[in-house]
Amino acid sequence: MPTKRRATLAAGLITIAAASSLHAAAQGERVTIKGEVIDTWCYFSGVMGSADAVVGSAHHTCALWCSAGGIPVGLLAEDGTVYMVLKIDGDDTSNGGDTQLQIASHTITADGMLYQRDGINYIVVSQVVADDDIINATHDDYGVIPGFAIPKSAKE
């Protein structure tokens, strides 16, 4: 292949690679989101029933299990959008960290950066500006989900 053509091909490939790199580094957007800190596996998979049943107080114990177990934590906004939490209040321990565990099922207002890629919303929370604790009293309608979340020994 002539040198000039090789150089043109190389330049083209570099341009494509640069475009690919730009795609990979998603553009962030500053957002403030109010929502509930949820267990994304039970919510998305339906493994324990409808999405309404796997939020709030009914699902709190399971949300603790899943958060401690390293399942990604999400922020379920009031409009139904789920944001995957990658960092919260400076803590990047998204694989089972203490910060996210301590606010399982809480409704919070989070200030941070939103990144969207391949249909998934990711949020890097710079600050939890309000923590309303657990306000979604779903146990009134669903009891506890799963039913074995409270062991029989709890009655003793």
Binding site: A24, A25, G28, G70, L86, D92, N95, Y115, Y122
Partner: peptide, 21 residues
């Protein structure tokens, strides 16, 4: 490491077990 991919915050070894992958 998705946090690295999205934000450029890239610790060694994908965060060494702290982060989602």
């Amino acid at each position: 490491d998705p946090l690295c991919e999205l934000t450029g915050d890239c610790p060694e070894n994908c965060g060494g077990g702290k982060r989602q992958l």
